[in-house]
């Protein structure tokens, strides 16, 4: 159980992010919570591919090593980070335009001021 602390960290990060998305009213805080969920997903992929005692999957000046960690989850994480960055930029752009249009960042106020 104590060896699984990285997995438990993934679960805790995901729960914190989900709590923020569901129960916070400030739309900036919701964007931060979405970023936390992204981080937990990236950490989950990296943790899935770890082998105890493994070195990074790069042969340049590697020295003596016994085994390498799995490279495919790392490649997928690379993809996920860039896509997360693009979606975060788009999210913040939409938040800026919402603030310009409504003059508030509260999601309940924005829903009440519809139209």
């Amino acid at each position: 159980m104590i060896n699984n602390i990285p997995m438990l960290t993934v679960g805790a990060l995901f729960v914190i992010g989900l709590y923020g998305v569901l129960f916070k009213r400030n739309i900036i805080k919701i964007a931060i919570a979405v970023s936390i969920i992204e981080s937990s997903t990236n950490l989950f992929l990296i943790v899935l591919g770890y082998r105890t005692g493994g070195s990074i999957p790069v042969y340049t000046l590697a020295g003596e090593f016994k085994k390498m960690v799995l490279p495919t989850p790392q490649a997928l994480t690379l993809t996920a980070i860039v896509i997360g960055l693009a979606t975060t930029a788009l999210l913040l752009t939409l938040i800026m335009l919402l603030y310009k249009h409504y003059g508030t960042l509260d999601v309940h106020e924005i829903r009440r001021l519809r139209g």
Binding site: N3, N4, I5, P6, M7, L8, V10, G11, V47, L48, G49, Y50, R51, T52, L70
Partner: peptide
């Protein structure tokens, strides 16, 4: 999370 494989020993590689 309780049923996942132990940290550091992936099942399929």
């Amino acid at each position: 999370l309780y049923n996942i494989h132990p940290y550091g020993e992936p099942r399929v590689s």
